[in-house]
């Protein structure tokens, strides 16, 4: 392969999906930049009360 491959990934958005992607990649051996607009990660899920079916607190 002629081109140089960079071992890092930019994940745009720190909601539940972005966080999961970032975690998987970091644990697989890649450097991850997680970009989030608001001051903390968690996205919409952090605003939910409980989630079905475990009635776990969404936190």
């Amino acid at each position: 392969m002629s081109h140089h491959v960079i071992g890092s990934v930019l994940v745009v958005g720190g909601g539940i999906a972005g966080m999961q992607s970032a975690l998987d990649l970091a644990n697989s051996g890649y450097y991850v930049y997680l970009l989030e607009k608001s001051p903390s990660i968690g996205g919409v899920m952090s605003q939910l009360d409980k989630t079905f079916p475990t009635n776990d607190c969404a936190m």
């Binding site: 392969m1 491959v5 960079i6 071992g7 890092s8 990934v9 909601g15 539940i16 999906a17 972005g18 966080m19 999961q20 992607s21 970032a22 998987d24 990649l25 970091a26 697989s28 051996g29 890649y30 450097y31 899920m45 989630t51």
Partner: peptide
């Protein structure tokens, strides 16, 4: 919904991993 988003998220990580596998562990 959330589980489907979590599935996609891991799938996207896998997809990125597939194209970057030769550069794994180079930047960590």
């Amino acid at each position: 919904d959330i589980p489907q988003a979590v599935i996609d998220a891991s799938a996207a990580a896998s997809a990125a991993g597939e194209i970057l596998s030769e550069a794994r562990n180079t930047l960590i």
